[in-house]
Lab assay of single mutants.
Amino acid sequence: KSPLTGYVRFMNERREQLRAKRPEVPFPEITRMLGNEWSKLPPEEKQRYLDEADRDKERYMKELEQY
């Protein structure tokens, strides 16, 4: 499975939280809201997602080498 970027990891995590709080909001609007939230997120909060993405990318590269 391909590695996910930090942005995609953030979107996946927050999308479920936002949909639970506001189920009436259409999917494209949720994506737009989360995109704005990501762009305003402080670098230190973004870093968690970026670090997870880096670890996932390393895992993926190792799997490719073994293939």
Score class of each variant (00 low, 15 high):
N36I: 11
E44F: 05
K1L: 03
P28W: 10
E44A: 10
R14T: 04
D54E: 13
E45Y: 01
E13F: 04
P43L: 04
K1P: 00
P28Y: 06
K57C: 06
Q17M: 10
T31A: 07
E13C: 04
F10I: 05
R15I: 13
Y7L: 10
E63Q: 05
E16F: 00
Y49W: 14
D54R: 13
D56P: 10
S2R: 05
R59Q: 13
A53V: 04
P42H: 02
W38L: 04
F10L: 01
L50R: 10
R55S: 11
E44C: 05
I30F: 05
V25Q: 09
V8D: 15
Y49N: 01
L50N: 15
D51N: 09
L18S: 02
E45Q: 05
A53M: 02
V25P: 04
Q17R: 03
I30K: 02
M61A: 13
R19Y: 06
K46S: 00
I30C: 04
K62T: 13
A53G: 14
R9H: 06
R48V: 09
T5L: 12
L50Q: 15
E24T: 07
V8F: 12
E13L: 06
T5Y: 06
E29T: 03
Y60V: 12
E58I: 06
Y60A: 15
R15D: 01
L64M: 12
L4R: 08
L4H: 09
E24M: 07
D54C: 09
K62C: 11
Y7K: 15
Y49M: 04
E58N: 08
R48P: 03
D56T: 04
K57L: 03
E65F: 02
M61D: 13
L34F: 00
V25E: 06
Q66A: 08
A53T: 12
L41Y: 00
R14V: 03
E13A: 06
V8E: 15
L4D: 15
P42R: 05
R55Q: 12
A20G: 09
R55T: 13
L41K: 04
I30N: 03
R19Q: 08
T5K: 10
Y49Q: 04
E16G: 05
P3I: 06
V25T: 10
R59H: 10
N12D: 06
L64Y: 12
K46Q: 04
P23T: 04
F10S: 04
Y60M: 14
R14G: 01
V8K: 07
L50I: 03
E24Y: 06
P28V: 13
Y7C: 09
M61L: 12
L18F: 13
F27V: 15
G35C: 03
N12W: 01
A53Y: 02
Q66M: 11
L4F: 12
Q17K: 10
F27H: 14
D54V: 12
K57G: 09
Q17Y: 06
L18V: 07
M11L: 09
L64Q: 14
F27M: 15
T31L: 04
L50A: 15
Y67F: 12
R48G: 05
M61S: 12
L50G: 14
V25W: 01
Y7G: 03
D56L: 00
G35S: 15
D54N: 10
K62Y: 06
E24G: 14
R32H: 04
R22F: 14
Y7F: 10
K46N: 00
E65M: 08
E24R: 04
K57I: 05
K1I: 13
R15F: 11
K62L: 05
K21N: 12
R9D: 01
F27P: 15
M33I: 00
S39F: 08
R22K: 09
Q17S: 09
E24I: 04
P43R: 12
R22Y: 15
L4I: 14
M11H: 01
L64P: 14
E24D: 12
E65S: 10
D56I: 00
P43C: 08
M11N: 03
P43G: 04
M11R: 02
Y49I: 02
R15E: 10
T5A: 12
A20E: 10
R32S: 08
F10A: 03
E16L: 04
E58G: 09
F10V: 04
E24P: 08
W38R: 01
R48A: 09
A20S: 09
E13D: 05
N12L: 09
E16M: 02
L64N: 14
R48M: 05
P26E: 10
M11V: 11
R55I: 04
R15K: 14
K21R: 12
K62I: 05
P3A: 09
R15W: 08
F10G: 05
A20Y: 00
E45I: 08
P42I: 00
S2E: 09
R59N: 11
L4W: 10
N12P: 00
L41E: 03
P26W: 00
R48D: 06
R48K: 13
S39P: 15
K62V: 09
T31M: 08
K46C: 01
D56N: 06
K21W: 01
P3G: 05
E44R: 06
T5E: 07
K21I: 08
R19D: 01
L64V: 13
E29D: 04
Q17W: 06
R22A: 12
V8S: 11
A20F: 03
V25A: 09
L18H: 02
D54A: 12
P23K: 03
L18D: 06
R59E: 13
V25D: 12
N12V: 06
S2L: 12
N12C: 05
E13Q: 07
E65N: 12
M61Y: 06
D56E: 13
E65K: 08
S2G: 04
R14Y: 05
R55N: 12
P43A: 12
K21S: 14
E45K: 11
R9C: 05
D56V: 01
E13K: 10
E24K: 03
R9L: 12
K46R: 09
M61H: 12
L4V: 04
R22L: 14
N12M: 15
R15V: 15
L64S: 14
L41V: 03
D54Q: 09
R15A: 12
K21A: 13
Y60G: 14
D56F: 01
D56G: 08
E29A: 04
P28K: 15
